[in-house]
């Protein structure tokens, strides 16, 4: 019973959504189901948020390893919740846009969340460098091709690349590094991406059919269908 209900819901909704693509009166059904999903997901947040608070309170209570971080987490959680719900400092009052300039919520966003997010994202610059140092080595023929392409793209994205091949006449402009970089992105890269995308599309079809037919049940913890 515990498995039959989710499997039935999946089979019915999956089939109806596939069929609705071909039946005009049902064509909005996809949107409706997305909406249902969003509503359920919002309620599920109580589970997630509640879990987060419970785990960190527990950690704090029992003074487990690294309990200091839990104070920061809990403070951040409740601080944002309160100033967002009560719209503290919002010039428009309780009925206004929560992100109005001047509200505590917006200020926290601008001066805390914004720099924190940017910092995490900025780590990419460092990691790209260390990953490419390790990965781009001419170990075999394919790796050498990859290395060459990487060189051209990297140079092509800088004014340095423009300078390097500025002497190439206009009639041979394809050989200029920036244009060569665009060509790599536009032709070989594109062909490869499309092949991957076609494969993904077919993979999704086959996986969805397995799920709808109830053959794939490993996510329910079963080995056999």
């Amino acid at each position: 019973m515990r498995r039959a209900i989710p499997l039935t819901i999946l089979a019915v909704v999956g089939t109806v959504l596939i069929v609705s693509v071909f039946l005009p009166p049902l064509e909005n059904l996809g949107e409706d189901f997305t909406l249902f999903f969003d509503i359920i997901a919002v309620f599920a947040f109580f589970l997630g948020g509640g879990n987060l608070v419970r785990i960190h309170f527990n950690k704090l209570w029992r003074k487990r390893k690294d309990w200091g971080f839990s104070i920061v987490t809990l403070f951040g959680f409740f601080f944002m919740l309160v100033i967002g719900l009560l719209k503290i400092g919002n010039p428009g009052g309780i009925g206004a846009d929560p992100t109005a300039e001047g509200s505590w919520f917006q200020e926290t966003f601008n001066y805390v969340i914004n720099p924190l997010q940017s910092t995490m994202y900025a780590l990419l610059a460092f990691f790209v460098a260390s990953a490419s140092y390790r990965a781009f080595r001419a170990k075999n023929r394919e790796a050498t091709l990859l290395l060459l392409a990487a060189f051209i793209i990297l140079l092509g994205r800088t004014p340095f690349g423009v300078m390097l091949t500025a002497w190439v006449p206009e009639s041979w402009s394809i050989a200029q590094i920036p244009n060569l970089a665009v060509w790599i992105m536009n032709s070989p890269n594109l062909a490869g991406q499309r092949a991957i995308i076609i494969g993904i599309g077919l993979g999704v079809v086959s996986m969805s059919l397995r799920l709808i037919l109830g053959i794939e049940r490993s996510y329910l913890g079963e080995d056999r269908g």
Partner: peptide, 9 residues
Amino acid sequence: IGEELFAAS
């Protein structure tokens, strides 16, 4: 890569 993820299970 792509479809292999869906084929994995």
